[in-house]
Amino acid sequence: MKVDFKWTAILIGLIVVCSVATGAVHGTLEDTIAQNDFGTEEEIDITELLPEASSLKKLDMDIPEDSDIQSIQGAYDGDELKGYIIKTDSEGAYSTISIAIAITNEGEISGIEILSQNETEGLGDEIADDEFTSRFKSKTAKTPLTLVDDETSAKDEVQGLSGATISAQAVVDGVNTAIEFFNTQLEGGN
């Protein structure tokens, strides 16, 4: 088969021109695209986390750039602020664990939800199970939580998972990040 070198070269040239042009357009639109929110906000089941509240409103707050806090939402029942949903990222054993923490006005954790994680199947991923996340219910949000081995009823202790210490600790770290933010930036500011 005869190969048409001239037109092959033109075709390659066209591809290069098109690529450069696409790059140029991307460069000019990049900033506008970055401002748009592409549904990356995970849906949160608010009835599970904060049963008293019925709607969420994103709070416009200054989050430090290097902070693990992703977003803060106010949980409202009508116009009344019932608590906050704070989303944090925390480094687990193998993946970034994204957690939503619900804290009531009274400074109590009313629930947490693991939004995304990619920990070891069968071990670390048990952090996303209700059995583990429910252990955070009714814990205090006034002081940081500690992970303990045994079942505990202390307000500032959470029972860990055997075989998944790093993942469980990561969740506690994420929750503590939220607690710290709650105590320094949110409490009293109702």
Binding site: C18, A21, V25, L29, I33
Partner: peptide
């Protein structure tokens, strides 16, 4: 090639 190029541009415009 041209369709792919235009598609890419249009997708960027959509995103923006």
């Amino acid at each position: 090639v041209l369709t792919a190029f235009m598609t890419g541009i249009m997708y960027l415009i959509f995103q923006a």
